[in-house]
Design a protein around this nucleic acid. Structure first.
Lengths: 219, 219
DNA sequence: CGCTCGTTTGATAGCAATCAACCAACGTGG
DNA sequence: CCACGTTGGTTGATTGCTATCAAACGAGCG
């Protein structure tokens, strides 16, 4: 894998977001822009957690792994998302780019100790917690097809591209997020296509034909 | 179920904790003491989220349910824990007492808007997030025996009672936390007993005979 | 053209869910 | 005091979903 350690310019990245976050809930990050190639590590477990990141383009996975290599992806971070804020001085998860990505990097202290943003960080953490609890419900109690359905709907909403979605991650990443194997994900997607729920144009491009039916699957 | 709506006294509950939380990380709650019976609802999904709680004694489960009744317990809250802090005005989860419990109740605003505690709440949310991510790893990637092992170890540590633990919750609660069925939990516990990993004195009282072996199970 | 890599498809195995008894503890009322 | 019903837990038999093992496929590329 080619390393692409390009620190380019000092930029102030302003919101411009719209969808989910409440009014003025957007976290401002002032820092350096950096690019990462597909599968390139951003940080690893155990490393110092003195930096925080915001996704400009592309996508990032944060994950934990067991001793024998089993991996659970905690979250996919998409454009506009802030990630890498940790409780301790040490990383509890790893982070890697899922595709060619551009990030803004900032010192954690610069951002965390800004009293103007205190409330925002608190809400940010709670929002992540809510998402994680949703995921726990999915991992603990939903079947494979329910997991994939909820994943596709969630992703479509976050990407804000209507019924069309360009999956930024591989089947393996989806599997490790959903607590399944790559084969099960593949089979489930194929079944959904067969059932007329979705349409595939290449394995990375999905069209939701019957989003209502998908939503029903998730109850 | 008998209702026990006793609002007794106005108390200031000060820390006195020690184990996990960092120095001065304890959230102070000033409010009213209230008792709840086993399985009594504290709040339900969709209700206004204007109160926050701290467990004095007993234990609380917070959970989400699917339309068909499948339930996932997000967290067990034990003595010293604060719970019920939500992002929105509405509850996303339900909360119920898992056994006879005493709680302190406070207005969310009184606590959240206290600038002296801002940092604490942020850290509190991040600590919960970390726990939730641990749980996601368990739910997504661990086998039944690994789940039970990690659960017992976690509980032993949180209760701070060494190798002896008095389980405050039923098998059904354990199952709904671990993403298993009650039968699988029961079988797994029995196997662990047979393997000499634990000792049972009644189904609610466990002694960890070989905590090291249990820890290995979790890798 | 033949390689590699990611994905799909197929056959089989295994773990945990489901369905069903059984058991012990407990409370109730005859 | 004891039959009875209830509740929570354990144990057994079987099913079924998803993992595993294995192979084929197709796109991209030297």
């Amino acid at each position: 894998m080619p390393t692409q350690p390009l620190a380019i310019a000092r930029t102030s990245y302003a919101p411009a977001s719209s969808a989910e976050p409440g009014p003025c809930d957007e976290i401002r990050l002032v820092g350096v822009t950096k690019s990462f190639g597909r599968d390139q590590a951003i940080y690893g477990e155990g490393e110092p957690a003195d930096l925080v990141y915001k996704v400009i383009s592309g996508g990032v996975r944060t994950f934990r792994v067991l001793a024998d290599g089993r991996r659970q992806i905690s979250e996919f971070h998409l454009p506009g998302d802030v990630f890498g804020v940790e409780l301790d001085a040490e990383r509890r998860s790893g982070a890697e780019a899922i595709c060619e990505s551009v990030l803004v990097v900032a010192r954690r202290s610069a951002v965390t100790e800004d009293p103007a943003q205190g409330q925002r960080f608190w809400r940010h953490a709670l929002r992540q917690l809510r998402r994680c609890q949703d995921q726990a419900l999915t991992l603990g109690r939903r079947s494979a097809s329910e997991r994939v359905a909820s994943f596709l709907l969630d992703l479509a909403q976050r990407l804000g591209s209507g019924d069309e979605l360009a999956l930024p991650m591989s089947r393996q990443d989806m599997a490790d997020y959903l607590g399944l194997t790559i084969e099960t994900v593949s089979r489930t997607v194929t079944q959904m296509q067969g059932g007329g729920l979705i349409e595939l144009a290449g394995c990375r491009h999905v069209r939701l034909k019957r989003p209502g039916a998908l939503a029903e699957l998730c109850e």
